[in-house]
């Protein structure tokens, strides 16, 4: 952590934000015409693209289908030019497999899979530019894509990262802050019931600081859910105007 000061004395971070401020959020639904649902999300400099196909018949082996629920299949991949150093393999390495598993678990908790027995829902997420908070951008983009595809869910799934520097919790970390060696907590939340779909934390943190950190992440997620809600309503308005005429 030498050199870069993650939090200045006046309370400003590296990119000029305050401790609990989120990055600029822009999203768009219905980006691709061919997929059942798609969404594009920009969280600061992190750009994520999510595409949903389904619900459709289970592809591949029939033994994977469940008799009472839908199977959710996720794949997380990064574009080779998304990181500062060029990545050789877009997907298939352990980190991407782990992320795909986490996304699958997050959405299995949120999507009402009992409505589609013996079918499969595919969620594909691609990171076009990576600047910290990859998992959160993916989850948010995938939520919008699922809404665009018309698949019923319990609630929006909002995800955000939070960190801890000098007794102050920071919300929505960028890449420099994540790799600075401090703590990173990723939280995926259903805002209305405040139930946590996935919690993940790396690096050391004293136990007493955990409640404050989780509180900061929860508040950030709730703020994010408002933005997502706005995007969905706006999209609906646009679409209904178009179809009416």
């Amino acid at each position: 952590m030498a050199g870069l000061e993650l939090l200045s004395d006046q309370g400003y971070r590296l990119d000029g934000r305050k401790a609990t401020e989120l990055r600029k959020l822009q999203a768009r639904m219905g980006v691709f015409g061919q997929a059942d649902g798609s969404a594009y999300m920009e969280q600061g400099n992190t750009k994520a693209l999510a595409v949903v196909y389904g619900p459709h018949e289970v592809r591949g082996s029939r033994s994977k289908s469940l008799h009472d629920r839908a199977v959710i299949n996720c794949q997380y991949s990064m574009a080779t030019f998304s990181t500062a150093e060029r990545k050789r393999r877009p997907h298939g390495d352990r980190k991407s497999s782990e992320m795909s598993l986490h996304l699958k678990q997050t959405f299995e908790a949120a999507v009402l899979t009992q409505l589609y027995p013996r079918s499969q829902i595919d969620i594909y997420v691609k990171i076009l530019q990576s600047d910290g908070g990859n998992y959160s951008a993916c989850v948010n983009a995938a939520t919008l894509a699922l809404v665009d595809a018309g698949i019923p869910m319990r609630d929006y799934v909002c995800a955000c990262t939070a960190g801890f520097v000098e007794d102050t919790p920071l919300a929505d970390l960028c890449h420099a802050e994540e790799s600075g060696g401090g703590t990173t907590l990723s939280l995926a939340l259903l805002p209305r019931s405040e139930s946590i779909a996935l919690v993940q934390m790396d690096a050391r943190l004293h136990q007493d600081h955990l409640p404050a950190l989780m509180e900061a992440a929860t508040v950030a997620c709730k703020g994010l859910s408002k933005v997502l809600d706005d995007v969905v309503r706006q999209h609906l308005q646009e679409v209904s105007v178009q179809t009416r005429e």
Binding site: H102, I196, D202, R204, H206, L210, E215
Partner: peptide, 25 residues
């Protein structure tokens, strides 16, 4: 030293914040 090194939740469960805090204790 009561420092948390790593938290990971898996499986499609919904947790509440105080559940996580209780588990850490």
């Amino acid at each position: 030293h009561r420092e948390i090194c790593f938290i990971q939740s898996s499986g499609g469960i919904m947790l509440l914040k105080d559940q996580v805090l209780r588990c850490s204790k």
